[in-house]
C-alpha cells in the first residue's frame, strides 16, 4: 500500500466517526419519521399499522380548510419568514456595517449584540412577555408617556404575530451581525479604494462593491435564517399564554402543530410526522431555490 493510499484510508477512518454519528442521530430519525408518517402511529399502542397515506390525506384536507389550525400554522409560519427574515437580515447588515466603521469599543458592542443569541429562548421569551404586558409592561408605560393608549400586544390576535416576530428578530440579530461582520472584513480594502478613486458615492459602493462581494455570506444567512424561521417553536410556546400558539391560533407554527399532534392528548404521531415530512419538503425546496437564485451572482 502506498503512503497516499494509507493516508486516504486513515482519513476515511476518521470520517467514519462523525458519519456514524450523523447517520444514527440525523439521517436515521429522519427516515424513521418518513416511516411514521405512513402509519397509524399511536406510541402507546403495540400495533402501528400502515394506513394507506391517510395522514397525508388528512393533512391536505386540513390545509384546504381555511379555518383549520394546521392551515393557520402554515400561513403563520410563512408570515414569520416573510416578515422576520428580511427584517433580521437588513437590520443585521446595517448594524454590521456600522460596527465595521467604528474602531473604539467594537468588541464591547459585539458582545452586547451577541448576548441575546446565547441566551435561552425560554428566558428571553419570558422577559419579553413582561415587557409586553398590557397594564404594567414597560412598552405600555413608554407609550403612555406619549399619550398613546395601552396596547395588548401578545394578547391581541392582530398584534401577536408581529410581536412574536420582533422577539425572534431581536434574539437572532447578534448572530446575523457577527456573520455579516466577518463577511465585511473579508472584503479587501483595495476594492473600496478603487471605487472611491473612480468617484463612486456611498450608495454605489454599497450596491456595486459591498453587496456583490458579500453575496456568499448573504446566501448563507438567507438559507439559514429562513430555515430558522420555518422551524420556530420555543419562542411561540413561551410567548403565548397557554403555550398553544394563541390567542385564537394567531401565533401558532408548523412545528408547534407537529408537537401538539404527536405528543398532545391525541398522540397522533402519524399525522405529526406527515406535517414534518411536508415541512421537510418545503425547507428543502426553498433552500435549493434560494441557493440557485442567489449563488449565480457570485461569479463576478
Amino acid at each position: 500500500m502506498t503512503l497516499k493510499n494509507r493516508r486516504i484510508l486513515w482519513a476515511y477512518l476518521f470520517l467514519l466517526i462523525p458519519l456514524t454519528f450523523f447517520i444514527v442521530v440525523r439521517t436515521g430519525p429522519t427516515l424513521f419519521a418518513f416511516d411514521i408518517s405512513l402509519r397509524n402511529y399511536n406510541p402507546m399502542a403495540a400495533d402501528k399499522p400502515y394506513n394507506d397515506f391517510a395522514n397525508f390525506a388528512r393533512l391536505f384536507k386540513d390545509l384546504a380548510d381555511p379555518d383549520h389550525v394546521t392551515r393557520k400554522a402554515f400561513e403563520n409560519t410563512f408570515k414569520y419568514v416573510l416578515i422576520g427574515m428580511p427584517l433580521q437580515l437588513s437590520i443585521g447588515l446595517l448594524f454590521a456595517m456600522l460596527l465595521n466603521t467604528i474602531r473604539r469599543l467594537r468588541t464591547l458592542y459585539r458582545v452586547i449584540y451577541f448576548i441575546p443569541f446565547v441566551t435561552s429562548a425560554v428566558a428571553v421569551a419570558w422577559v419579553w412577555r413582561s415587557l409586553y404586558m398590557p397594564d404594567f409592561g414597560l412598552f405600555n408605560l413608554i407609550l403612555e408617556l406619549f399619550g398613546v393608549p395601552s396596547q395588548r400586544f401578545l394578547l391581541d390576535p392582530a398584534q401577536s404575530l408581529p410581536s412574536v416576530t420582533a422577539v425572534v428578530v431581536w434574539q437572532g440579530l447578534g448572530y446575523v451581525i457577527i456573520i455579516f461582520l466577518a463577511g465585511l472584513q473579508g472584503i479587501p480594502e483595495t476594492f473600496y479604494e478603487a471605487a472611491r478613486v473612480d468617484g463612486a458615492n456611498r450608495w454605489k459602493i454599497f450596491t456595486k462593491v459591498t453587496l456583490p462581494l458579500l453575496n456568499p455570506t448573504l446566501v448563507y444567512l438567507l438559507v439559514l435564517q429562513t430555515i430558522a424561521f420555518l422551524r420556530m417553536f420555543a419562542e411561540v410556546v413561551n410567548l403565548s399564554r397557554q403555550g398553544d400558539g394563541g390567542p385564537v391560533n394567531s401565533t401558532t407554527t408548523v412545528v408547534l402543530r407537529v408537537f401538539r399532534e404527536s405528543f398532545g392528548s391525541s398522540l397522533n404521531m402519524g399525522y405529526g410526522a406527515a406535517i414534518t415530512v411536508m415541512l421537510f419538503v418545503i425547507i428543502m425546496t426553498i433552500s435549493l431555490v434560494q441557493m440557485r437564485l442567489t449563488q449565480r451572482q457570485v461569479e463576478y
Binding site: D67, L155, D156, P157, Q242, D244, G246, P247, V248, N249, G264, S265, S266
Partner: peptide, 29 residues
Amino acid sequence: DEAKQRQALIDAFDAVRLNKVDPCKALAD
C-alpha cells in the same frame, strides 16, 4: 380528546372577546 375539546372552547371564547365574533357562531364552530 379532552385537550382538543378544551382548546375548542378556549378558541371560541377568545374569538368572541378578541375578534368580536358572534358568540353563537363561535360556539357552533
